[in-house]
């Protein structure tokens, strides 16, 4: 068992280093920095709420880039190893399939989270340069973005194992991510539908990640009592990712190469 955990750690570390060694994240960081600078122009439209609008714009952008990266990286990770036949070198070693799946996911998620942290730091630096106070909920919002990226990344990895192409996997993951923002509304509709349709729809909605749960910025900024609390957020993230990884391992362990 120790060997399996060690293999998981080695694969996670390699995936993390690979992402930082190639230019993908340098491009992402450059894009974010440029976009944040344009945010300074946008703030002119915000009247007396400049600092708040700028903070929200930057946090939203960090989250969008983070989530898009998580979906893309997790959708392509296993498929790319299969297409390049690198999987032969990995799985011909004493590496259990779950170690490979979990290691890939952990490495990619860690690299996305570190990219979100870097973009957040750049954004905070821009705010301080403009003499705006960094809002107290700023770190909490970045942590929530990281958790969102982990949840959607785990789902993207699972979807990639049964979808027919990278594009379909990315599109399906984005649909789930969008639907996840309106989960309470979807549950309300399922409840109102009743009958067979409602009975079928209600359990299916549990497969959709509850992204609205992670809306920390709005909850903390406007003091709306909708924040579920950190134990719930972390617990949900761990459970959802764990379920996706378990299902991914189930699918992956039957694959032949």
């Amino acid at each position: 068992m120790n060997g399996a955990f060690s293999a998981c750690y080695v694969i996670a570390l390699q995936s993390f280093r690979e992402q930082w060694k190639n230019r993908f994240f340098q491009l992402v960081a450059a894009f974010a920095v440029i976009a944040l600078y344009f945010g300074l122009i946008l703030r002119e439209m915000a009247g007396d709420q400049q600092a708040r609008v700028y903070a929200h714009f930057g946090l939203g952008l960090c989250e969008l880039v983070g989530v898009a990266s998580a979906i893309y990286l997790c959708s392509t990770a296993v498929i790319r190893d299969m297409e390049t036949k690198n999987i032969y070198l990995l799985l011909s070693r004493p590496v259990p399939r779950w170690s490979y799946v979990a290691g890939k996911f952990l490495g990619l998620t860690a690299s996305v989270m570190s990219a979100i942290a870097c973009m957040g730091l750049a954004h905070a630096a821009f705010m301080l340069l403009r003499h705006y106070a960094v809002p107290s909920y700023f770190p909490a919002a970045l942590v929530a973005s990281c958790l969102k990226a982990a949840v959607i990344g785990a789902l993207a990895m699972f979807v990639s194992l049964f979808s027919t192409s990278i594009l379909s996997s990315v599109v399906m993951s984005f649909i789930f991510w969008t639907l996840g923002h309106f989960l309470s509304e979807a549950r309300f509709i399922a409840h109102k539908l009743g009958g067979v349709s409602g009975a079928v729809l209600a359990p299916l909605l549990y497969a959709v990640p509850n992204i609205s749960l992670f809306g920390v910025t709005d909850a903390l900024d406007s003091s709306i009592p909708s924040f579920a609390g950190w134990p719930v957020l972390f617990g949900y993230c761990v459970l959802y990712c764990g379920a996706c990884l378990a299902l991914s391992t189930g699918l992956f362990s039957r694959k032949e190469f």
Binding site: Q14, N86, P94
Partner: peptide
């Protein structure tokens, strides 16, 4: 195992790659 036309992550050095597979082998 040496597969036909093996693929390696291009951003790593030979030493890093071989070390990676050594670690994976336990």
């Amino acid at each position: 195992y040496l597969p036909e036309l093996p693929y390696f992550y291009p951003y790593f050095t030979a030493a890093e790659s071989v070390a990676f597979y050594g670690r994976l082998s336990g």
